[in-house]
Design a binder for these strands. Structure first.
Lengths: 224, 224, 224, 224
DNA sequence: CATGAATGAGCGTTCATTCAT
DNA sequence: GATGAATGAACGCTCATTCAT
């Protein structure tokens, strides 16, 4: 019979994560003190250790939460009728809708992952999830002839991830970055890679004269 | 009456930067102590402050030096007979030849730039130099009809930078990143953006056939 | 209207003391946390303060309980037909039978008594009880001519206590201490101090022969 | 070319040890904070770590210094013409001349040694030194027929150490302990164990009729 | 100019104790 | 009475920076 209900406990944990996220993004992991987070979350220094064993665990908890959220977003992507539109929406979401501090934190986490194995592992698993989801999705779409990828799907997905990271990075680091211009330009680069087949509503698909594939040159990969 | 010659002083400064770079890349800015750097560079904690006013100034000095080096590398790019080959070489250099710690440091500096205005300013100026160099170069190449960019040059360069950063980031952060596969794939994505005109040595360029630009659809930007 | 019966309350108090004893002996007073004891005794941190006002009070309670147990053991000593045998048994008990942690705790309590007046007072009263019991006992035995102490009884008892403490200390502190050898040696040192008169069962004690005391030189003290 | 001379450095180290000793004796290892010691020694918290790596190392340093001092004192004992007088002097020194806090610290160190292996090892080596010195000394004296131990020398020394520790313990723990009475009484107990042979100055030693040994009953040990 | 011992504010974390439930 | 989450003052220790030598 705990003094606090499970839901209240969860809420408090979330509250700590929320404030930790802002603090870490503002000042970086190492310049942020536990006291900073305590003050922001209006919690005592002792109490925070009820929820997280250490500062490291707090960082890991943050990444973990992000991953969970990401998984939800990918479930949506898989159901989307128009893949390219969904992808554009995803890019828009992370580039425009999400507040700056989320991206700053992403960079911070990448930097931390180059030396903190625990953080590296959590990020890697997060990244693998995204990659695998994309590969599974594109494979299915290709099997349904809704896309005709211009290269091996692994390579196409690799390029998409690379561009996605580049997008996030520049948005975070370059104050002059113009998302309105660059987002469509980026989609225009990705489109021929994925090469979506126009879906003719209420009409028999795949006419003999379907022209697009011919124009989509295969790009390099180890194998053809 | 300085006890040490100007050149010896310069050498010592370089030595500090060299070791600071390795230390910072290994452990991050905040986990690296001035003592660590002093030990590595075999200098006393007092002396290091003769060369750099503070730890922050040391970080800034590091970025500054990188910028200078970068400028040299870009001078070469502009003279290269084959732009795409030169670009591929550049990508190869930063992805394969440079040691890991340089990329870790790049990420670290990006993270730092989101909160340290001095670092942000130095990085921004470095970035602007690269961007301006590319724009000037592509503009000249386009004027000489050696390339026929598929979009506004500013946008093309913006995409190239984005992809370059994405490349560096993934190479730094993703241990499974396969540069051998991804580098050619990336070049294949950039090629139609820049759209280089095949140079027939000592022969009149082919004009009879419809030129490439027709096949290169203009990609989006606010302006067309 | 107490929810818990007096006996259950007493049992719980004892349980706390039992586990506190083990915890304190294992880690010392200051390295043992109240949480450690709570976990061991399966009680909540709030509840433990119902039984003991503070950590200090818990320590004092422990010593107090030891004193009570000691008093029981001394009652037996006084009734023993053979004083030296009973003494040897006592030494054997504290040196061999009692587990290590009891002796570690004894040392710990001695250390604590040098600065904690409450602990000092409890220990002193415990010590006085033992001393007074011994003095009363030896005085009676001397009056009955069952022993012929070689010095003032106070001094003899003082030496016995000193040796007893030395025995406990070395047994606790010196891992190479060999009780099997040292215990008889110690008894052989004490014997001439106490100088027990051989008891001939059911026969008039021998008086004709010069009694032992002649050979037992009085040992020093300010008074003789 | 250090800022501080080696001797000044040594003096500062000694100063820290001096004050640490008093602080530890007054409040125990765990209740004494590094700040307490810093304040007492008038040093900054940072500076103390130049001399000692940790609080543990400071404690170990303290014991180490005691050992060194002890070794000096034993050198004197070995040269003494009258062993029993020298022993009495030693007992007097540790019981009466040394300030209380030294003995409190001794108890503290014993308590600490039951759980801190580093402390245990240092104390054990200190103890072994004393034991070995005594054994070597008594063996030599016995060979020179200046003493005729009443039991195996190892056992005699074991008893002496036990009594010495008991003496220190009671002196530290029992405020009513009367050294003036107990010291001679203790020497009177030890004397027949060691059994010194009266040295007749200017007379041929070892007369046939040397009587003492006959009266000194062998005391128990595993072997005779 | 170089040295390196010294400084001291501040770090992440602990834990005896409290009190709303 | 019992609970256990919360409190918050310290704790041991670090490290960017200074300054007497």
């Amino acid at each position: 019979m705990p003094k606090i209900s499970a839901s209240a406990q969860h809420a408090r944990r979330e509250r700590i994560l929320d404030h930790a996220e802002r603090c870490f993004a503002r000042a970086g992991f190492h310049r942020t003190t536990m006291q900073d987070i305590c003050k922001a979350a209006e919690i005592s220094p002792g109490a925070i250790y009820t929820y997280f064993d250490s500062k490291e665990a707090l960082i890991a908890g943050l990444i973990e939460r992000d991953r969970a959220k990401l998984q939800g977003q990918f479930a949506g992507l898989a159901q989307a009728p128009d893949f390219m539109a969904a992808l554009a929406g995803l890019a828009e979401h992370y580039t425009v809708e999400e507040p700056d501090y989320k991206r700053a934190l992403f960079i911070e986490m990448g930097a931390e992952s180059t030396r903190n194995p625990q953080v590296a592992e959590t990020m890697r698993s997060c990244d693998s999830f995204v990659r695998d989801s994309f590969i599974a999705l594109l494979t299915r779409l290709a099997a349904e002839d809704r896309i005709r990828p211009s290269a091996e799907i692994e390579v196409v997905v690799g390029l998409m991830l690379l561009m996605g990271d580049g997008l996030l990075w520049r948005r975070a680091v370059d104050p002059g970055f113009d998302a309105r211009t660059m987002l469509p330009a980026l989609m225009a680069v990705i489109a021929p890679l994925v090469n979506p087949v126009p879906q003719l509503p209420h009409a028999p698909a795949r006419q003999a004269t379907a022209p697009a594939p011919a124009a989509a040159p295969r790009i390099a990969g180890e194998s053809v």
